[in-house]
Design a binder for these strands. Structure first.
Length: 343
DNA sequence: ACCAATGATTTGGC
DNA sequence: GCCAAATCATTGGT
């Protein structure tokens, strides 16, 4: 039996009780209504329709009149009695539903994406600093990155303002309903539990609206994300300086070209790229170098000279052209010098 | 348009 | 989780 049916039976009980039991002070009218029910209903309808034409003051006066009516306590007690009978069956219906797994998923995702939860101010500042440290113009990837962050911030802002709006509307509406119920409790019995239930119903409704908001926010983030990833797949070559830094490291560690996590971070910072990009680069470089050492000979020598010159400059012994510092004991063959005498 | 270079991704082994 | 290897997809020079 659902609530609606219960309500209907409750109402049926009400009419059954009130009509014969509650004495109508206007016996003439009662008789009339018994004799001519059609006309009476028409009369009531007319009265109801007339309500819309009444001014607010008139309505207030009417309400006041009802509250002060001498039969009001009697009506109230009758309503109480009816309620006693019906409330028992209503009580304990679907109390406290568990938190929706769907909404929990959405919440987790929004939190993970940084839409909800604390603002990530430090990250952007660090990225900007890294871009500045990389020297000169920021790379394209960082432009895309900031674009992504800006869009995400936009989504975040919309999400929060909407959420706030909903929450405000919810509390306003709840207040309104509670006031209404309190007002009505003067004429009909309303338990605090009922008010609570009503509030719960309102909150459920609003949370379903909230879920829609969360869902569409998630969608927006996903779309943004996929666009960003697509943009990343549209690769840009690293700038000359970055390649230089990476190659320098590679050829000066040719015996063991596997940078540690710290070294990768350092290189990433120097080049203005991510650590995984550094890893990709070294992965590609190792395999391509190994596959065709000959092809990389020139490059290897170039960087060998570079590091040698650097080392020489540092040690302030430029006159002695030492062989490059390429400690070699591992799997990657050392570069050999070109026969054209370029060292 | 073609093609080598190159950054990113996938696959499979450890 | 890192690596090698293969492969994909784009870039940039010709």
């Amino acid at each position: 039996m659902d609530d609606q049916t219960r309500m209907l039976t409750g109402l049926a009980g009400l009419s059954g009780l009130t009509q014969p039991d509650v004495g109508d002070p206007d016996s003439v009218r009662k008789q009339q209504s018994l004799v001519q029910p059609q006309q009476d209903i028409g009369d009531i309808l007319q009265q109801i329709m007339a309500i819309t034409d009444e001014s607010l003051d008139e309505a207030q006066a009417r309400k006041h009149a009802l509250n002060c009516h001498r039969m009001k306590p009697a009506l109230f007690s009758v309503l109480c009695e009816i309620k006693e009978k019906t409330v028992l069956s209503i009580r304990g219906v679907q109390e406290e539903d568990p938190p929706d797994p769907q909404i929990m998923r959405l919440d987790n995702m929004l939190l993970a994406e940084g839409v909800s939860g604390p603002e990530k101010g430090g990250g952007s500042a660090a990225a900007a600093a890294a871009a500045a440290a990389a020297g000169g113009s920021p790379t394209d990837s960082s432009i895309e990155h900031s674009d992504y962050r800006a869009k995400l911030a936009q989504i975040r802002q919309i999400y929060h303002s909407e959420l706030e709006k909903y929450e405000q509307a919810c509390s306003e509406f709840t207040n309104h309903v509670m006031n209404l119920l309190r007002e009505q409790s003067r004429t009909r019995p309303i338990s605090p539990k009922e008010i609570e239930r009503m509030v719960a119903i309102i909150h459920r409704k609003f949370s379903s609206i909230q879920m829609q908001l969360k869902q569409s926010t998630c969608e927006a983030v996903m779309i943004l994300r996929s666009r960003f990833l697509d943009a990343r797949r549209k690769r840009r070559n690293f700038n000359k300086q970055a390649t230089e830094v990476l190659n320098e490291y590679f050829y000066s560690h040719l015996s063991n070209p596997y940078p540690s996590e710290e070294a990768k971070e350092e290189l990433a910072k120097k080049c203005g790229i991510t650590v995984s990009q550094v890893s990709n680069w070294f992965g590609n470089k190792r395999i391509r170098y190994k596959k065709n050492i000959g092809k990389f000979q020139e490059e290897a020598n170039l960087y060998a000279v570079k590091t040698a010159v650097d080392a020489a400059n540092v040690s302030a012994q430029a006159s002695q052209a030492n062989s490059p510092a390429t400690p070699n004991s591992g799997g990657y063959p050392a570069p050999c010098y070109t026969p054209d005498g370029r060292l």
